[in-house]
């Protein structure tokens, strides 16, 4: 059933958020420490396990893919309720942060591509096999 997938997602999120809150309390700060990230890792591991055991039916997966597909629309709704009018004077800072982050990331592409260039990565071998077939 579709709701099984949705429930799995909901349980992962609640557990992750709880773990994040707990971590915050333990560390003595008023923040949710990585809750969403923890929930994502949980979901990846659980889905992997369930698929291997063939316990995650097509219908249940639909419940997960629906919410995954709602991601961008929800981000649009999130953007539409921010205090943009109040933030406008910070605009140049936002643009500068974005531009510099992209520039630095572009510059790092050749640097990191050169690391371990000699040894072929597994994904490349697999791809060659695909082509051979």
């Amino acid at each position: 059933m579709v709701v099984y997938g949705v429930a799995l997602l909901a349980i992962c999120m609640l557990t992750g958020v709880m773990a994040g809150d707990l971590l915050g309390t333990v560390l003595g700060i008023d923040a949710n420490v990585g809750g969403v990230g923890i929930a994502m890792i949980m979901l990846v591991l659980l889905v992997d396990r369930l698929k291997q055991k063939n316990k995650l039916k097509e219908k249940s997966q639909e419940g997960l893919s629906f919410w995954s597909a709602m991601y961008i629309p929800i981000v649009v709704a999130m953007s539409a309720q921010q205090n943009v009018a109040g933030a406008l004077e910070g605009g140049p800072m936002a643009i500068l942060a974005g531009v510099l982050a992209v520039t630095a990331s572009f510059a790092l592409v050749p640097v990191l591509s050169n690391i371990g260039k000699g040894k072929p990565e597994s994904f490349l071998n697999e791809n060659k096999m695909d082509k051979a077939n």
Partner: peptide, 19 residues
Amino acid sequence: MGGAMLRDLAIVATAFGAS
């Protein structure tokens, strides 16, 4: 719709595509 609750749910759901 764009509040923290559904936003976090949808973000966690995107992990579904990853393996």
